[in-house]
Simulated assay, not measured.
Amino acid sequence: MDDATRPDHAPASHPAIPREKVGVLLANLGTPDNTDYWSMRRYLSEFLSDQRVIDYPKWKWQPILQGIVLSIRPFKSGAAYRTIWNTEDDESPLMTITKAQTAALTAALAERYGEEGVMVDFCMRYGNPSTRSKVRKMVEAGCTKILFCPLYPQYAGATTATANDQFFRALMEEKWQPATRTLPPYFDSPAYIEALAASVERKYAEMEDKPDILVCSYHGLPFRYLTEGDPYHCQCVKTTRLLKERLGWDDGQITTTFQSKFGPEDWLQPYTVEEVARLAEAGKKKIAVIAPAFSADCIETLEEINEEIRESFEHAGGESFTYVPCLNDDEEHIAALAFEIERNLQGWLD
């Protein structure tokens, strides 16, 4: 706290107080610390114990999770992570990309507000760096106001809400709580839709033979969550519609699917892994897949889409599979995020 000073007229014994700042805390899902069994088990235990993610009663779910699931799944998940691991920096791609996004947003907001006014950092809902540690860091640095930004365009209880829950739990430990705001979902933000469309156009411009259809694959949820009031499905469908309208396409050129089904319940449909096979069998031999619900490439995109879902399509007779990367630290994505952040800092910073 190099900029910490005692308040005017305070006695010499008064502790120094850092200069007031506004904090912008980005939040993503999380990542294991490594790909070994115990790193994966710790991460998966935290993730799959979250009742926003799996809402079965603890007495029913925890024996299954701790006894069966976590005896087997860490090996499978660790093997999947090893196929995409950033070995140079010894971290997952999600960590690498989130760091790059944080650096880019730091620069963008410094240009807007000056280098001293805003502190930008990131945390993970599961794993490290924890939300609690980053809230503590911001408070110690003098952040009397914090905008908490879950990096999920579409709201879901299992993503946005649980990230907010963890943020509020961290605030409960602070003696002097900062004023806080949370970033709303931005699934229909014109800047976000423009960034998505531009990424599709760039990818298509590289290709001689254009895909027959673009599959917008969103992370799935149990169908029951929709009936209980979660708006995620509706927001995903609207994102696809707005993307279609921005691209000037008709309905036959784009579709919405859902991936990553887990457990015995019915989830939001159609399932991506099944739909790409159906498309291949129906004569759509060239497809592209984009993942608009993910702000950064991760295990669900780099391994599940680009390996498992690709294999399903090719096994069914598909000939050309193109993955359109997540927006990551793309310049237009950073501009879209900066716009949403600036909009939500109004009244705090002008």
Rank of each mutant, 00 (worst) to 15 (best):
E20T: 12
G30I: 08
S77I: 01
H14L: 04
D55C: 04
D2S: 11
G127V: 09
T106E: 15
D3Y: 14
G114Q: 10
W38L: 06
T96R: 15
R73T: 08
Y56M: 13
A80D: 06
P18A: 05
N128L: 11
S13V: 10
Y113G: 10
H14E: 09
V24G: 10
S13E: 03
K58I: 02
L29T: 14
A12C: 00
D55A: 08
G67Q: 04
V53Y: 00
D90R: 07
R19W: 09
D89L: 12
A110G: 12
A80R: 01
D55K: 00
L44F: 04
S49F: 10
A10L: 02
A141Y: 05
R125M: 05
P57D: 04
R42A: 14
M124Q: 11
P129T: 03
G114N: 11
K76S: 14
R136Q: 13
P18V: 02
S71W: 06
I97L: 11
R41A: 11
A10F: 11
E46Q: 14
V139I: 08
H9S: 09
V118Q: 07
R42F: 14
A27Y: 01
H14F: 15
L29N: 07
S133E: 12
V118L: 10
E116F: 06
R125C: 13
L44M: 07
Y43G: 07
A12L: 04
L26V: 06
P7H: 08
S77D: 03
E20A: 14
H14Y: 13
S49C: 08
H14N: 01
H9I: 00
R132Q: 12
G67S: 02
E116G: 08
